[in-house]
Design a binder for these strands. Sequence first.
DNA 1: GTAATAGTGTCTTTTAGACAATATACA
DNA 2: TGTATATTGTCTAAAAGACACTATTAC
Lengths: 250, 250
Amino acid sequence: MTEEDFLATYDPRAFPPVAVTADVVALTIRDDALYLLLIRRAEPPYAGFWALPGGFARPDEDLATCARRELAEETGLGGERLRRVHLEQLASYSAPDRDPRMRVVSVAHLAFAPDLPDPAAGTDAEDAAWLPVADLPTRQLAFDHTRIVDDGLERARSKLEYTPLATRFLGSEFTIGELRAVYETVWGHALHAGNFHRKVLSVAGFVESTGATTEHGGARGGPRARLYRAGDARLLHPALLRPAQEETIR
Amino acid sequence: MTEEDFLATYDPRAFPPVAVTADVVALTIRDDALYLLLIRRAEPPYAGFWALPGGFARPDEDLATCARRELAEETGLGGERLRRVHLEQLASYSAPDRDPRMRVVSVAHLAFAPDLPDPAAGTDAEDAAWLPVADLPTRQLAFDHTRIVDDGLERARSKLEYTPLATRFLGSEFTIGELRAVYETVWGHALHAGNFHRKVLSVAGFVESTGATTEHGGARGGPRARLYRAGDARLLHPALLRPAQEETIR
DNA sequence: GTAATAGTGTCTTTTAGACAATATACA
DNA sequence: TGTATATTGTCTAAAAGACACTATTAC
């Protein structure tokens, strides 16, 4: 053990300063497309670039709390509606040069939200917006946020497979067709309506019936659909797997 | 936006100091039991307690590098043998009071290693040891390390389901029976030998034959077994699922 | 020989997926 | 009326799991 190591064990203050931020990859679905909450940076570094919402942890809060606070501030959301947003830790990003100002370790989080009002209304009018994920390849995000978003999207796709979190993109009551639209939007391809329907109902605790149906049929015709709410399962068993993509396996 | 927030955006140095450590939940298998690498702390806080190996990130290294360095230092491992150890990020732990000295955010990592020589030999003879995971309930670990270990164990169990990482607990060549023993040890229950055998061989890229067999049969009899090495799959498809435990689903 | 293990065969059950049919409601 | 959608039915294929059997080797 070097003397430096010993000192480190003995007193962490001996080490150079590090800042820790919580950043949030917040996803929602609008018009059958996936949207991501982004903030346009006003100040350098990366002034003018879009970046993930996030900020430095306050002394008295853990990073999950920090992430939820940042999300509340940027979306203008609060109370029950904020509580319905799913928030989980994604991963930490710690490349020494990822922020030119100083050493900043980011603990990224992933959020699933139902369609929300546009931000900035209630907030201090920063330039915050829900942008279509499909447009991201044409934009360069600040810092390493492109990588973080990619990781978040992959985690989201994966989470829909074995958890009931797809329901978090919807209101408290929804139809099987709306739930299928969430899967199709996040996974990016069409699913067979009949098989999906049967599968969802066969997984214990995924959804439970409300007994009611929609007021009207679909916009382009069709019968009224039954309404469901999220069930009590935390995991889907058996899971709802994406068709295997050979590329991702090897 | 409060002035404090603005300042934070503008200059992270305005925030109180935080230290960032990489801690490692390093697992190995000995005698059909799961072992965890622990360090006995010499200094307060938690002097005399067992703790996860870990330490503060140096200015020029990211946390994965830091975790691998810590693992190398504590195991006395290096070169090819260290490279064969699987290391992945687990999660970050950030409760404000998790370290009484100051704010310390830990980015925990998870490592799978083949059976290794006992530590301390080559190193600076700290009190480091591989301890049976089964004994942990009787020990109180330092800080929030019990929680971190629990999360690591659950991640390990889950990873064996859909990745070929079980092979990382073994040498470069192994029998199907040895691979099955890894699953049985990590999952904590017996598997059907015949069905496991067929399943492993049926998953593309999980293992590939070396053409050779073991020199001798099993210690208690039986034919020589064929030898395999890890294949090129990164994911198992279809996955090798644990029997569903009703408790974990709800 | 006895016992244990490797590896294979076979059958049943579960699940996934393709495809079809029917009923409902919008335009 | 024509079309889109919800829901259910049916059949096939893939996979999981139970169980049995043979061959090989340690002792």
